[in-house]
């Protein structure tokens, strides 16, 4: 990214921040605003800052073992980042588990770099006070699958099993409001207040929703990972908190990713 582009992006960010504040009390035209905003930054999504930060983190030796992540195997062989996200989650022989991008990054950071797992999972999401290394790394990795076809496999029995469990979690109603993911995401053309809800039982909806995450959120001024997206929907579902990169979240991701297969991966995206 050259300097003039960078300056322009910063300007756009400032504009967006004021726009977002305004949008809070004028939600009626949220989608128009986001469209206008998309136009403005058509040649630069602020998520690029995270992609750059993630790339540096990937290449820089770190942790007690002072190692980079360049030997991390995301499923396409050690160090191969290109196209890796378009085939995740998948089964990994070394851990004997189905892993999504973030749980796999967690494995690499603990095994290759020797960073204690608890140090990463204590605060896995970015806040305006502190960026998240694992989120930045994820943003970098997904950027290397841009434009590729989502092709997540269910050939391995464990992959098939994760998909089936994910589907069950999607429909699992509980909590004080009796909500499941399906309460909000299994009917077409409905919305909560003014926010349109994708119907994950419909291919086209699942594809456009899934393939646009992770995403830079204008209202928060932060790039958000897919684990964050699930976490915040479980919050709205009035559930307790899903453990970061847990089997439940990976299975659910598997279900959604397979539902989105065939989409051209378009992340990191840009959202309200």
């Amino acid at each position: 990214m050259n300097t003039s582009r960078l300056t322009r992006m910063i300007l756009v960010l400032a504009l967006a921040a004021s726009g977002a504040a305004q949008a809070a009390d004028d939600s009626a035209s949220d989608s128009d605003k986001i469209e206008a905003y998309r136009e403005m930054i058509s040649d630069g999504n602020p998520a690029e800052f995270d992609e750059m930060r993630g790339e540096e983190l990937w290449k820089k030796p770190a942790g007690p073992k002072n190692a980079s992540l360049e030997k991390c195997d995301l499923g396409k062989g050690a160090g191969v980042v290109k196209g890796a996200y378009a085939a995740l989650p998948r089964y990994f022989k070394d851990t004997k588990k189905v892993q999504d991008l973030e749980s796999r990054l967690l494995t690499c950071m603990t095994t290759l770099q020797g960073i204690p797992e608890a140090d990463i999972t204590a605060k896995p999401f970015a806040s305006d006070k502190k960026p998240s290394d694992i989120s930045s790394l994820a943003t970098y990795v997904v950027g290397q699958s841009k434009g590729m076809k989502m092709a997540v496999s269910t050939k391995h029995p464990k992959e098939k099993e994760a998909y089936e469990i994910g589907k069950r979690i999607f429909n699992y109603r509980a909590g004080p409001y009796d909500f499941a993911c399906s309460t909000c995401h299994a009917t077409s053309d409905v919305r909560i207040r003014m926010q349109d809800l994708p119907n994950f039982n419909v291919k086209a909806d699942a594809q456009s929703a899934y393939s646009s995450w992770p995403a830079y959120r204008v209202s928060q001024g932060l790039t958000r990972s897919f684990q964050w997206r699930l976490n915040d929907c479980f919050r709205q579902q009035r559930f307790p908190e899903p453990k970061f990169a847990s089997e439940a979240t990976v299975a659910l991701t598997m279900y959604l990713a397979v539902s989105a297969n065939g989409a051209d991966y378009a992340g990191p995206g840009l959202k309200r």
């Binding site: 979690i169 307790p240 439940a248 299975a251």
Partner: peptide, 25 residues
């Protein structure tokens, strides 16, 4: 699969603020 799903759900959620883990029951 139903049994395994329940097992995973009971294990993979934790208390946060007023939302206690037993809400998944």
């Amino acid at each position: 699969l139903d049994a395994k799903t329940t097992e995973i759900i009971k294990r993979d959620f934790r208390d946060k603020g007023i939302a206690k883990a037993d809400r998944v029951n």
